[in-house]
Nucleic acid binder design. Structure first.
Lengths: 211, 211, 211, 211
DNA sequence: CATGAATGAGGTTTCATTCAT
DNA sequence: TATGAATGAAACCTCATTCAT
């Protein structure tokens, strides 16, 4: 995809009617299914439409182009994860560091594994620049919320909150991606939560200054 | 995913003449350049050949198909990183944990940032199964070497070396990927080394049992 | 020979709309025209599509590949000839040998010369195995019908009906092919019917045992 | 058809040296082998050269293009068959009809089955016009010899020798081709000679006028 | 609004042929 | 002369997108 600045990536219309919403959902589901069963290179608009039980024409009523479709699907996924993590972070305002890490990591892992297929399917969609910005935006936002949380820790202070937050998030995201992409050895998957907690907490405690 | 097992991914001929070797190198370099400047979706065999200053036909004398070309480029990159890290790990046999982490992380970061363009360009090439296997194989091998190193630590023992190694590697690879893919804010990049060391060491010390 | 069993030779969709049927017919006709005017080696999908007044894409909506297109055209031709000959053979059940030969040969020659262009165009399409099987199947079926006819002759019996039938059919098909392929001297063409009759009858009478 | 008048179909040089002759023979053999094992569509100049144990460049020293190579191979095959049949025909000058047929048919069948692989491989090479002319020329020449023979029959006269000869030849060639192309049921193959004799003799006796 | 037939640019790949070594 | 690397025109085929019905 060239990703020209001209073509819009936003959905064409906000579906207000019930039937429309059902169609959009069907297309959404179909996209993920095709992604999972056939892979990104084999994801064609016709195939998605067929799996959704509609015609290509209909698909193009809701998305101006294929990019927009993928963008939209990725967006929804990232927002869901982001919201979950942000909610967890906000709920731990003022708590001790260990509790923060425990709760946030748990929320992240739960969100990712609950929608594991979605997550797997979407990892390789980052192909384009528009998408890179999207990811950046979501991380940015979640980053702010988490930074606020860290700054409010009852038992720790941080010298460079921005940097520390970045690493904290990366420490959650990175290994999770490795596991999901790498066809998860399964016995490792169940260990992901505690391990991630240990990883993040170990790091944060090293970086923490006494309050 | 598709990925037919039939289509070979191995290069077509070992170039014997001097001219051939130059051609192969040019194609190799061109692939990375195109990947960097145009991205994977815009990487076409014609474009690569043009950038290399040869014709498509020539490209196909050395690689049976586009996949094989990408596979080959990725393979070389992964091997280089893998070798570097493994060498570092072997050199620290019997050392204390902190020294191990410091050395291995430094080696990894150095290798990745030295070939930063290559690394960036190749992250999104994992499109298909053949590639997934390759990554797995390299990780497998490096994992064994690192596990051996960890088991030899003079000041620590680990309950589940396999799992710990996996997380250790993921903790290095994941955040690095995030940074390189995310267009690196640069001031963060210089912090990567120490941060990664802190992340890994914090984790490993939590997991370590007294010896 | 190559001929992978995987690639389907069957048309892609049964056209339901009126427009579609017209398109399919146009492609069909175009194939024969191109075959006639340019020959098999110059028959490209683009050329066929252009002659049919459609785009390549359209052609590929109905045929999964070039082979399938040729297969389809050949199939229709063979079926037509086959049906004609079989009908003639069945109508002569129980008749005397000379009448049988006269009728069947006449039917065959009529069918071939009526669609002479098609016949000429298609002789050299037997390039691959899928096609060979098709030809075999048609010959097989027609052979059975003809064998039945011969066995019912009122004035003759045959020792080895299978062999005799084979030769009978080959005696019709072979010289006809020679003539059509050889750019027919025209004055010979009009003689084909009687000559073929003489050839076949001469043979069958020699092979016949008294009843 | 393609066959541009400009490109010569004649071999480039008459090889006079022994080594050259060996090379030409090797290329010749290789062409037939490739034709048999891979089929015409997969016959490439490189493959032929490789099978012959030489380089493409060498192949092009002896044949100006691929057409010329195929032409040459077909030519040699046809000449061999032609010579055999003509010799047989000439040897039967003045003999009775039955003896003529018996001898000529036997010679033809022997020649074809002795070089059966060659024959099979070459049937589908008639693709081009230049080739059609070649076939015509050979048939023409053999036809004259056979016509002369028929006219000299001690026990028969023919009203239209030209036509009769044409049918006689076609009656030999056609069924033989059918058998060889059709993957020969083998038990039929051994019957080919007598059957062909019966076919031709039956025809010729019907066409013969008393002398 | 929905459909799906049609489009055609563009991608991958092959292979006859040339020519510097 | 022999070699085989290089060429590039041209083939096959796909698929995002449009638009008449």
């Amino acid at each position: 995809m060239s990703s020209p600045a001209s073509t819009t990536l936003k959905p064409r219309k906000k579906p207000t009617q019930a039937r429309s919403q059902a169609t959009v959902d069907a297309i959404f589901e179909a996209t993920i299914q095709v992604l999972l069963s056939d892979g990104l290179p084999s994801l064609t608009t016709i195939r998605v439409a067929a799996r959704a039980g509609v015609s290509v024409g209909t698909l193009y009523q809701y998305y101006p182009n294929k990019q927009a479709l993928l963008y939209s699907v990725l967006e929804r996924h990232l927002y869901r994860i982001g919201e979950t993590v942000e909610a967890a972070a906000q709920s731990m305002h003022g708590a001790p560091l260990a509790a923060m890490v425990s709760t946030v990591v748990a929320a992240f892992v739960k969100a990712k594994t609950e929608r594991m297929d979605e997550a797997c399917a979407l990892y390789n969609v980052s192909t384009d620049l528009g998408t890179a910005q999207l990811i950046h935006a979501v991380e940015q936002h979640a980053g702010e919320v988490i930074a606020n949380m860290l700054m409010s820790a009852s038992d720790a202070r941080f010298g460079n909150v921005e940097l520390t937050t970045y690493m904290f998030v990366a420490a959650m995201v990175g290994p999770t991606r490795s596991m999901l992409e790498g066809g998860v050895p399964h016995k490792l998957l169940s260990a992901l939560g505690p391990q991630l907690e240990s990883l993040c907490l170990g790091y944060l405690m090293r970086e923490a200054l006494p309050r």
